[in-house]
Amino acid sequence: MISVPVHVQLLLASILFLIGLVGVLIRRNVIFMLMSVEIMLNAAGLVFIIGGAHWHQADGQAMVIFILAMAAAEVAVGLALILQVFHLHKTVDVDCLEELKDTQS
């Protein structure tokens, strides 16, 4: 098969993960944030695949399947919520959601 060392593979996963993380942090559009979360989940899945490959186990893959299911469920609820937010606020700007906060007394 391939002889790319594991840590390089993990490096790839990490880079993808962190790109996703940056995306969550810097985008004000909720849809983009959700997308970035998907990137992160995908990167996490990649790690399981790497692990599964190296220990030659199916467990890693099983886990990724569950991750997929979870991503689907989360996206479903997430998108519904985004729609509701847009419905209520007429925007997808996450910084507009700041009604809940500590009021300085």
Binding site: A13, V24, I50, G52
Partner: peptide
């Protein structure tokens, strides 16, 4: 909650993955 939980789930998963590796 959704956003933070999703991100933290991803972090958690990545962590589990690393431990698995």
């Amino acid at each position: 909650y959704l956003m933070l939980a999703a991100v933290s789930s991803a972090i958690l998963l990545f962590g589990i993955g690393l431990m698995y590796v």
